[in-house]
């Protein structure tokens, strides 16, 4: 594959559609499973996928390599859009609970080798997630996949808000530790 993600984004700023196609091919296989996992419905996930990459094309000039990797830039956007949508759905229908149950299930299995660029770091992160105390993993998954806020998590788990906040902080400290660049 030619060009780093950051280089592709630079070319996209210059209006290079070919670079966008390569950018899509590289990152859609990473982002789509996440969106699908959050939204469950393939039609909704397709909408959000398109929205996310459209915004990436339009907002490419706003990408700053000093502030994070292209992957973090795109995944953060994808999560935000998917979770915005799921929260809107939940507001419309109190019965929309499937993702909550799914999020409460055990940590998802490793998807295998069909996703591009599986680095050691990422395997380590998955391992780190699996190694978290289950109470910490639970709050991360409720927020990450079901889009619950800390207050909603506290209500759902019938735990004090302070406990939930501490769990989130500790879990993220651990996950950051694992991916922190060694430079």
């Amino acid at each position: 594959m030619t060009g780093s993600g950051a280089e592709l984004i630079r070319q996209m700023v210059a209006g290079d559609r070919e670079a966008f196609a390569r950018f899509y091919d590289r990152y859609a296989p990473l982002v789509f499973p996440l969106i699908q996992r959050i939204l469950r419905e393939r039609a909704d996930a397709s909408d959000v996928l398109q929205e996310v990459f459209w915004e990436a094309w339009q907002g490419a000039a706003g990408y700053d390599p000093a502030r994070g990797s292209p992957e973090a830039w795109l995944v953060t956007r994808a999560r935000t859009r998917a979770i915005d949508r799921i929260r809107a759905m939940r507001r419309r229908s109190e019965t929309f609970v499937a993702p909550l149950h799914d999020a409460l299930a055990a940590a998802p299995a490793d998807p295998g080798g069909d996703v591009a660029e599986r680095t050691e770091d990422r395997r380590t992160v998955q391992h780190a997630l699996a190694q978290l105390p289950s109470a910490q993993r639970e709050v991360i998954e409720l927020a990450y996949y079901a889009g619950l806020t800390q207050t909603e998590i506290a209500e759902r788990l019938k735990q004090p808000l302070g406990t939930v906040k501490t769990r989130i902080r500790l879990a993220l400290e651990r996950l950051r530790e694992v991916v922190r660049p060694t430079t």
């Binding site: 296989p29 789509f32 992957e71 995944v75 998807p111 996950l175 950051r176 991916v179």
Partner: peptide, 17 residues
């Protein structure tokens, strides 16, 4: 944190765009 959470995306079950 964003980097760590982006890496977590890899733990979603596979799905073809």
């Amino acid at each position: 944190s964003y980097e760590a959470l982006a890496a977590l995306a890899r733990s979603a079950p596979p799905a073809v765009p």
